[in-house]
Amino acid sequence: MGTVLAPPRSKPPLQRAPRLTRLQRLRRRGIESYLFTLPVVIVFVVLFAIPLAQSFYYSLTDFNGYSTDADFVGLANYTTIWQDSSMLSALGFTLVFTVGTTAAITALAIPLALVLNRKFFGRNLVRSVFFFPSVVSVAILGLVWGFIFAPLGTGVINSIIGWFGAEPIAWLAEPTLAKLSVIIVAVWGGTGWHAVLYLAYLQAIPSEFYEAAGIDGATRWQQFRYLTLPLLIPAMTVSQLLLLTGGLKVYDLPYTLTGGGPGFATRTLTQSIIENGIAQGEVGKASALSVVFFVAVGLIIVAQLALARRLESRFS
């Protein structure tokens, strides 16, 4: 890590010259910037790089999570993971979930953030209520939404549609509806959280900018297009990065709501990884799965970031 700290060439001129040239100031800032990033580098090495390397090593062994020694098996784990027939449907649902939640939450959170940024009676209360769904532990949501989606006539949604004379719907028992239900709960839980994120980014405009724009006779749309949107695009980059990674890694919400069912309809990739690693004691195989998964998620994210950068340069 010492090498990260200081390119040694830049030090002597720094001490000699009383006035720094622009380049030298830049260089000095370079050193300082590494000092500022040093803690995060340590965090990365200790909590991510080393464990990840170990994980990668496990993926080449038959480690079962219990024994303290394991045998090297080469790439065998990487070939066996593709033989699991349920993996394909897990991949399918994981993608549907990720795209569905990312699109829906983005579409709902931005208008919500814009509204919550305006003054109206009860704003603080509304803001809190929207935020709280993300605070509750997922385990309890499984129970509560279970009652809401109950296929019985006494289920919350079914009672409501019953007032309009409709037959009860088996929300979690029909594959397509079950997928939809899981996405609905995820959107319910995530929208407020992301709205708060957008809200924070909206604060980067000093309010006098708006005032000035108002005096200059800018229309509402112009204000949105030239003041608000350039701030929303970077927020969107961050928010969608979180939604995509979170969506691809999702496990607990579908699991508590449907147990991955009916059949394999709402099974996710992470559920496969966890079941392999913990319940079946096949840490080697689970590690191989997560390495593949990690690479795949990485590719998707790089694509998303490239797209986001183009958007940012277009709108700022």
Binding site: V41, F44, F48, P51, I274, V283, S290, F293, F294, I301
Partner: peptide, 21 residues
């Protein structure tokens, strides 16, 4: 490089690094 590093860290599924940690 540090930026890329942070992105990598972001993608690690937490469950898998439990035993090494």
């Amino acid at each position: 490089l540090i930026g890329v590093m942070c992105l990598i860290a972001f993608l690690v599924p937490g469950q898998t690094t439990l035993i090494p940690l």
